[in-house]
């Protein structure tokens, strides 16, 4: 048994987003959004299509420069990236549209992430056997160890595997905060059901997670809090059941009642 790493006290704010806005020409994709994420919690971000969820993720992770606003991770300003610095400081993300290295064997996808200086730093200056660690990580996200799948080129893997591969590549960085951009999209009910325990296990280990998700039913089972976006604005934030009871949230998803 390995000694569990000392956890920082829960409730400590690990990620702070203040007044974040992004304008593309005349369109305001994200409009003055502020929120905090506490150590060890799972925050769900939901909203109808085009409400700015993925733009928000891109802003937080440094892939986009915000027009105004500030993002800080553990008190350190990470506004506007560059993305490799944001990741270096411990904020890892998956992509909604999977971005594997198609030419490489599946486990080598994870080896690329294990090559990063952050991994070396956290391991105390040594990389260790990257191939073995990559296979451990793939097992953690639900690949069968030593199956033919992990040696296959990523280009021939089915979508469900690629989603897991994205997750493994993030976990390789041993991140402080994990941002999952629609991890469940395009997966079958069975696939989602098998992925939920993976996330629950991360939560037990004290990982802070932001989940952007369309699959509300699955999300609400595991989320501590949710944040609702509509037309780039935050319209609600709180415990899932309470948030979904609010008329303006129902209106955003189902159409406003006043319009009838």
């Amino acid at each position: 048994m390995t000694e569990p790493a000392p956890q920082p006290p829960r409730d400590e704010i690990i990620l702070a987003v203040e007044g974040l806005s992004k304008r593309f020409g005349g369109v305001t994709a994200v409009d003055d959004v502020s929120f905090n994420v506490k150590q060890g919690e799972l925050l769900g971000v939901i909203g109808p299509n085009g409400s700015g969820k993925t733009t928000l993720v891109n802003l937080i992770t440094g892939f986009l420069q915000p027009s105004t606003g500030r993002v800080s991770l553990k008190g350190q300003d990470i506004t506007g990236g560059p993305p490799y610095r944001t990741a270096e400081l411990g904020l890892a993300r998956t992509f909604q549209m999977v971005k594997p290295f198609y030419q490489l064997p599946a486990f080598k996808n994870v080896v690329v992430a294990l090559f990063s200086p952050r991994v070396k730093r956290l391991a105390g200056g040594a990389y260790g056997d990257r191939d073995a660690v990559a296979k451990d990580l793939l097992e953690e996200v639900g690949f069968e160890r030593d199956s033919w799948v992990i040696n296959k080129q990523a280009s021939v893997l089915p979508h469900g595997y690629l989603k897991r591969l994205e997750l493994a590549r993030c976990l390789a960085l041993r991140p402080e905060v994990l941002v999952l951009d629609e991890l469940f999209s395009g997966l079958s009910l069975a696939e989602v059901a098998s992925l939920v325990p993976v996330i629950e296990k991360l939560m037990v280990q004290g990982m802070t997670i932001i989940m952007v998700e369309h699959r509300l039913k699955e999300l609400f089972r595991i989320a501590d809090r949710v944040l609702v976006l509509n037309f780039g604005q935050k319209i609600a934030e709180g415990v899932p059941a309470e948030v979904m009871a609010q008329p303006k949230v129902r209106g955003a998803y189902l159409g406003s009642e006043s319009e009838d």
Binding site: Y84, A92, K99, P100, N109, V112, L114, P117, C170, L173
Partner: peptide, 24 residues
Amino acid sequence: SDYGLVLKGINDNDRAVMSAALNI
């Protein structure tokens, strides 16, 4: 080598390499 993997990764998908904390 693993260094070469990073180069091939950049060719395949440079955003994914950046998100792996590597200065492409």
